Measured scan of single mutants.
Amino acid sequence: VPQRAWTVEQLRSEQLPKKDIIKFLQEHGSDSFLAEHKLLGNIKNVAKTANKDHLVTAYNHLFETKRFK
């Protein structure tokens, strides 16, 4: 089981690129989880459509539901 890579403050910070969060989610989330949160596909394309709040919610949801690969 992966550990949380970032704190809530870090997740919301401008310093953390959306692409980093997407990469983490794609590496650790199950396909059904990723599909549900519309996070499947090319990281660049996902970054265009997903806002930061959406990614933070998905990140927290992944750990709450433990839907890891």
Rank of each mutant, 00 (worst) to 15 (best):
K69C: 07
R4M: 11
Q10G: 02
P2G: 03
L11T: 01
H54L: 11
T49L: 13
T49A: 09
V56P: 01
A5F: 14
K18W: 04
L62H: 01
A47G: 08
F63G: 01
L55G: 00
P17L: 09
A5M: 14
E14S: 14
H28Y: 14
K48G: 11
F68T: 06
A35E: 11
K38G: 14
K48H: 13
D53E: 14
H54P: 02
V46R: 06
L34H: 01
L40D: 11
I22D: 00
K44N: 15
V56C: 05
K66W: 07
L55M: 04
K44V: 15
I22G: 00
A35F: 12
S32V: 09
L16P: 13
K23C: 11
S32R: 10
P2H: 09
K38R: 12
G41I: 03
Q3I: 12
K19I: 13
W6D: 13
F68S: 03
Y59I: 03
K18H: 10
K52G: 03
L16H: 05
S32A: 11
F33P: 00
A47L: 12
K66N: 09
R67P: 04
H54V: 09
R67F: 06
G41P: 05
K52M: 06
T7L: 05
T65Y: 14
L11W: 02
V56D: 02
S13M: 03
K23L: 10
K44E: 15
I21Q: 01
T57N: 10
S13Q: 04
K69V: 07
R67N: 12
L39N: 00
V46T: 05
N45S: 10
H37D: 00
L55E: 00
F63T: 02
S13G: 04
K66T: 06
E64C: 11
I22H: 01
K66G: 12
P17D: 13
P2F: 03
T57G: 06
S30P: 03
P17H: 14
N51T: 12
Q3P: 10
H28G: 02
T7W: 04
V8I: 11
A5W: 15
F68Q: 04
K52V: 07
T7D: 15
L40P: 01
P2V: 07
F24T: 02
A47F: 04
R67L: 07
H37P: 00
H61R: 10
K44P: 12
V8P: 15
P17K: 11
Q26N: 03
D53N: 08
F63Y: 12
N51R: 07
S30W: 03
D31E: 12
G41H: 05
L40C: 14
L34K: 06
F63K: 01
S30G: 05
L25S: 00
F24M: 04
K23S: 12
V46E: 03
H61M: 14
R12M: 15
Q3M: 07
F63C: 02
K19V: 13
L16S: 03
V1H: 11
L40R: 09
R12S: 09
P2E: 04
L40V: 11
L11K: 01
A47Q: 14
N60T: 13
K19A: 15
K66A: 10
L25C: 01
E64D: 12
Y59G: 01
E14T: 11
H61A: 13
V46Y: 05
H54N: 11
